[in-house]
Computed example of a mutant assay.
Amino acid sequence: MWLIVKALISAAVIVAVAELSSRMPRFGALVLTLLIISMLAFIMSWNKDHDMIAISKLAREAFISTQQ
């Protein structure tokens, strides 16, 4: 059941960003780069493994990769 919920949430975010990007490209890019995607990844990772070390590594790598 959780797999279906995760897929629906991910699909909704992707469709929303795609629709927004076709109407307002700059705003779509802004939404895409916001923490929404990161937060969803953290939540899904936590629900799957409850491994805070893995989530902190993911957060650190996401932050570092956006700074370069």
Rank of each mutant, 00 (worst) to 15 (best):
W2T: 15
W2K: 00
L3D: 04
L3V: 06
I4H: 07
I4V: 13
V5N: 01
A7S: 12
A7D: 05
A7C: 00
L8C: 01
S10A: 07
S10K: 00
A11Y: 05
A12W: 15
A12C: 05
V13A: 15
V13W: 12
I14D: 03
A16Y: 06
V17S: 02
A18M: 07
E19Q: 14
E19D: 10
L20C: 08
M24A: 14
P25M: 08
R26K: 14
F27A: 15
G28V: 12
G28K: 12
G28S: 00
V31C: 11
L32K: 02
T33K: 13
L34N: 15
I36Q: 06
I36E: 02
I37N: 06
I37R: 03
S38N: 12
S38A: 03
M39P: 08
M39E: 11
L40R: 06
A41D: 01
I43T: 14
I43R: 12
M44Q: 11
S45F: 00
W46L: 02
D49E: 09
D49G: 15
D49F: 06
D49R: 04
D51T: 00
M52I: 15
M52A: 08
M52F: 14
M52G: 13
I53G: 13
I53L: 01
I55S: 03
I55M: 05
I55T: 04
I55G: 09
K57Q: 01
K57E: 03
K57H: 11
L58R: 04
L58E: 04
A59I: 06
E61I: 07
A62I: 05
A62D: 05
F63P: 00
S65L: 09
S65P: 02
T66C: 12
T66L: 10
Q67C: 03
Q67S: 04
Q67R: 03
Q68R: 06
